[in-house]
Structure formats: structure tokens, C-alpha cells
Design a protein around this nucleic acid. Structure first.
Length: 224
DNA sequence: GCATTAACCACAG
DNA sequence: CTGTGGTTAATGC
């Protein structure tokens, strides 16, 4: 079985695996297709596998003292639970598919042998972790310092530029979830979206968004 | 004081 | 699940 060898959605790290390692991984993993809304990782449960998002879109979220907090939106290919898998024994956060997602569960001890025996693999893994950490610092600063309009603008640009590569897209989250992502109430999200619409910056029909004035949105994201 | 921002509540589609 | 209006609190001139 060489499903991993011929996979078109390898992680940067697993591109460094040799043929025998790839076939070992093939024998010790299972793939599963999640539908929108399905929970992939549950906060509090034991984490006994390495979980790799091959393709799709998910939200990482955790239950806070007041409400659910969305930590970040992640798209494939990406490892999903490394901080939980290696940082502790249980999942510190949940992962839920917000679009259909193809996920591979990789046996932890198999993965560990790659980490220990293949430096190129480990190096790529380390890069991914560091990029994630840098990104989380940036998002932390944005979240705490930007007002609602700035945070919203930033995330609309993120969906358009990074996720959908189009100025026209359908929001994969409802207003409350966007609020939980940018630290705002669902009412503020509604109102701010309406304001953007009225000012001709975007067009909204329910969850369909069209960005009209991207420059303006960038300015709001920067200064708002 | 006065303006701005945003949360909370209520109510209507 | 959304959008809007009224109200209230905090913050900054």
C-alpha cells in the first residue's frame, strides 16, 4: 500500500520521507472525510493520533469561561493537533470542519520514529510550528488592539485572499462565530457588515460576500 | 459635557 | 439565524 507516496496533499515534512517511511506511514494511518459541522477533535479527549488535514477548512476553538472562542481558521494541508499531541496528553482545543474536509489520522508511534530518525522531516515540522507560532502572535495583537471594523476587515481579506482566492465568496461562519473569532458580539458583526455594505465597501446577500473596495478594506484593517 | 464604540436586550422577519 | 433600535457603560477629548 502506497497511498501516502502518491498523495497529492503531502505536508512539507512528509515530502522528506523516503519510500519505505512513506509505506510505513501508509500502513499506519486512516483517512476520513468530514462534513461541514462535524467535530474532528474534541476538547478534553485524549489525543492519541497525529491528525493531518489534507484538504478542507476547519476552525480551532476552545470553551472559555464566558463563551466559545475561535482560536483560528486553518486550511489544508496542515497538521491539526501537534500542540495537543506533543505538548500534553489530551486535546486543549476542539477542531470542527467548516467545509468538507479530508483528514488523515496517523499512528503516533510511527510518526515519532520519523521525528527521531529523519532530520529533514523534523526540520520541516519545526518550520511549520514556528510559522504557526508567529502567526498566532500577530493574531493576538490584532485581536486585542483592533476595533470591530478593523478585525472584521482583516478577516474578510483573509477569506478572500488566503482561503478563496476571490473577491466573491460565501462566509463559512455565521455572525456569532465571526464574533467569537474577532472578539465581538454577533450584533456588532451584523451592524459592521451592514455599515461596510452601506459605504459601498462590500456587497452582502446573507452569507455571500463581494468585496468592492479592497483598498478601503485594507485601510480599515490596518488602522481600525 | 459630548462623541465614539460596543455590549446587552428585545423584537421582527 | 439576522438586522435594527433603544439603552447603558466605558473611554477619550
Amino acid at each position: 500500500m502506497d497511498i501516502c507516496k502518491f498523495c497529492h496533499h503531502k505536508s512539507k515534512a512528509s515530502e522528506k520521507l523516503n519510500d519505505s517511511e512513506l509505506s510505513l506511514q501508509s500502513e499506519n494511518c486512516a483517512e476520513y472525510r468530514f462534513k461541514k459541522g462535524d467535530i474532528i477533535i474534541r476538547q478534553g479527549a485524549l489525543s492519541s493520533n497525529v491528525i493531518f488535514l489534507r484538504e478542507g477548512l476547519v476552525k480551532l476553538h476552545m470553551t472559555g469561561p464566558l463563551h466559545e472562542q475561535i482560536i483560528k481558521i486553518t486550511y489544508g494541508p496542515a497538521y491539526l493537533g501537534l500542540p495537543s499531541t506533543f505538548g500534553d496528553k489530551y486535546n486543549h482545543y476542539s477542531v470542527t470542519a467548516i467545509e468538507e474536509s479530508l483528514v488523515c489520522f496517523i499512528d503516533l508511534s510511527t510518526f515519532r520514529t520519523f521525528v527521531k530518525n529523519n532530520p529533514d522531516f523534523t526540520y520541516q515540522l519545526m518550520i511549520e510550528l514556528c510559522v504557526n507560532e508567529l502567526d498566532s502572535y500577530h493574531r493576538c495583537v490584532s485581536r486585542t488592539q483592533k476595533q470591530v471594523s478593523g478585525g472584521l476587515a482583516e478577516n474578510l481579506l483573509f477569506f478572500a485572499d488566503t482561503i478563496y482566492h476571490s473577491n466573491k465568496f460565501e462566509l463559512p461562519l455565521n455572525r456569532e462565530e465571526i464574533g467569537n473569532l474577532i472578539d465581538a458580539s454577533r450584533e456588532s458583526v451584523s451592524r459592521t457588515l451592514s455599515n461596510f455594505h452601506d459605504e459601498g465597501i462590500i456587497k452582502i446577500e446573507n452569507k455571500k460576500i463581494t468585496i468592492i473596495d479592497k483598498e478601503r478594506l485594507r485601510l480599515i484593517s490596518q488602522y481600525g
